[in-house]
């Protein structure tokens, strides 16, 4: 007993080894597990990004900022920002508006997993398959138009592909599952006893949503909005396949693609990519600034 005590005392007296000192700073063998991911990030994101950033300042002709000047002075380029926003913002809002009520209902279901699987299925299809399907289904001779005509609701087929609406529908189909899953996880994270407490205090369902769920959900919805928006903003395949890539759906990624692979101007393409990143960042920053103004603490009651 006494020898044990004295030996441990001696251990404490000795200076800790370099291994222990690094471990105290959070660096130990387990840290090495981060290495593959870090290499991956550097090789496939940071390096190409920096490369493109530098490349964008080395235009084919003109000074350092010639590419940027050209982008903003030529409406053919500059207008792609507005075009992309006009698609991405409504799509994101629409996806959220659809996801919130559905997630609200699904959270109460006992067979939640079955319905969730069903709702998430489109994520596995990929944009191209969805676009193919849409061309048939929403085309002038598709089931959608034929059904509406047969029901007497319309006399001529409505155009829902090869225009703005085609891209919008396609992005809702492919973007909804992601938005929904994220929203569902935020909603189910809210302690259900809060709603019960509100009910016993006399709050009707609408008031419970407005005073309890909505404020607690808002920070999560802001993040969901940003992630969904970024996805929609970088739309490319559906803008080409079910859109009108020469006019109404000439999104910013098409402009970048054309510069790179039709004009072979990689410098210009890089500049467009940088502008794309910057405009996304502006939207994300605006949303996060708004998020900073609302309550962001825990969504369950203090203890329990």
């Amino acid at each position: 007993m006494s020898t044990l005590a004295s030996s441990s005392a001696r251990l404490e007296d000795a200076a800790p080894s370099w291994r222990l000192r690094f471990a105290a700073m959070g660096l130990d063998g387990v840290t090495l597990l981060l290495l593959p991911a870090a290499l991956f990030l550097v090789a496939l994101f940071i390096y190409p990004f920096l490369y493109g950033f530098v490349l964008s300042f080395e235009p084919k002709q003109g000074g350092m900022f010639a590419n940027y000047a050209r982008f903003f002075s030529d409406p053919f380029f500059a207008n792609t920002i507005a075009t992309t926003m006009k698609i991405a913002v409504p799509v994101t809002i629409l996806n959220l508006a659809l996801a919130i009520p559905i997630a609200f209902r699904v959270r109460l279901l006992r067979r939640q997993r079955l319905l969730t699987t069903f709702l998430v299925l489109p994520i596995t299809l990929g944009t191209v398959l969805v676009a193919e399907g849409m061309l048939f289904y929403f085309g002038p001779q598709g089931w959608f138009n034929r059904s509406l005509i047969a029901l007497g609701l319309i006399s001529h087929p409505v155009r829902l592909v090869h225009n703005y609406w085609g891209v919008l529908i396609s992005l809702v189909i492919t973007g909804f599952p992601f938005t929904f899953l994220l929203t569902l996880s935020y909603i189910t994270g809210i302690d259900p006893s809060l709603e019960q407490a509100a009910a016993t205090l006399g709050a009707k369902p609408a008031a419970r949503f407005r005073h309890i769920f909505w404020p607690l959900l808002l920070p999560g919805l802001a993040i969901t909005f940003c992630l969904s928006f970024v996805q929609a903003y970088s739309v490319f395949p559906s803008a080409v396949l079910v859109g009108e890539p020469a006019a109404a759906t000439r999104v910013i990624s098409i402009a970048a693609y054309q510069s790179a692979f039709e004009d072979y101007d990689y410098s210009m393409a890089s500049a467009i990519a940088m502008i794309m990143a910057a405009t996304q960042l502006v939207v994300v920053l605006i949303v996060f600034a708004g998020r900073a103004l609302v309550y962001r603490g825990p969504v369950s009651s203090g203890k329990g």
């Binding site: 302690d191 006893s193 809060l194 019960q196 407490a197 509100a198 016993t200 205090l201 005073h211 309890i212 404020p215 607690l216 309550y295 603490g297 825990p298 969504v299 369950s300 009651s301 203090g302 203890k303 329990g304």
Partner: peptide, 12 residues
């Protein structure tokens, strides 16, 4: 009036 086991106070 109901008092819950986990108090269920509105955290916001």
């Amino acid at each position: 009036g109901m008092v819950f086991q986990n108090y269920a106070l509105f955290p916001h």
